[in-house]
Amino acid sequence: MSTGKKDETEAALTGEVARGDRRKQYVVTRVLQGCAAVTIATTLAIFAVLIDNAFSFFYGQRLHEAILGATLESRVGVVEFLTGTRWAPYHAFPDYGVLPLLNGTLLITVGAAFISIPIGTATAIYLSEYASERVRGVLKPTLEVLAGIPTIVYGFFAISFITPVFIRPVFETLGFSVSFYNAFAGMVVVGIMTIPMVSSISEDAMSAVPDDLRNAAYGLGATKQEVSTQVVLPASISGILASYILAVSRAIGETMAVTLAAGHRSQMTLNPFVEIQTMTAYMVQMARGEAAMGTVEYQSLFAVGLLLFVITLSMNLLNDWVKRRYREVYR
């Protein structure tokens, strides 16, 4: 090795060009990091605002004021909030038990899941295993359109079509009394609007199952239905369960459609034909400005919002857990 060769190599490896490239790379990395940090910062900020304000619902002062030394007054007990069965913020004797709202939300969510999960899964199986290229070319964009319809349109669809044309004629003939706003309409529209979520994520998971596995089963004389249910479904179960959880989270957080379809009457009921109120619908009502800022009624918005946030966060954590848990078994 001559000295000249060594110097030349060193210059190439450490010289101006190499340093310039490294500087550029550093800047690019920082910019990308910064963008990613925005989403994290926003999430944390929302969480902080919710907690700060919800604190004043319970204790009369915001959390940061309390930390700075403001005197607390007990307004609504946490236990009373979480276990109370009457939600009546405007009543002469107001009550802040969140269970009727939670009841409304869960009623809609469970009902919607009974629609979106079976139909979405079946659609996914059809798209992934049965449909020809041509049919898939029509069906997939249609589902994307379904996913892109604004939820307020779904809500309007519920009160102008689903309730008067479908629910009322059918169930009133069967002897039920159906009110104009009813939980059932909410379940139906939220179910329909979450079908694309289940079907597209599940279909992605099923399509990712290697053809080798399908061929193995076909080669043994399995029917298409056996291949779909015994080979493809188990191999893609983590993705399919993830789609269910995401659809349920979406149903929990769904706002405009249920506000329009299911109404504003908070009550503890499992009857799908009466008017109910979900957590989100209550928040719409309250945010419209019927109460003055700082009052208990107004601050209740944040307590309900915080609860909603905690529920959807748990769903996300559950989603992560399910993905990890089932991937271990099948990969």
Binding site: A217, L220, T223
Partner: peptide, 19 residues
Amino acid sequence: VALRRRIGMVFQKPNPFPK
């Protein structure tokens, strides 16, 4: 389906089921 029950197949890449 009935045909493949009489004529089995082994593939290029080993493809056991995840079972």
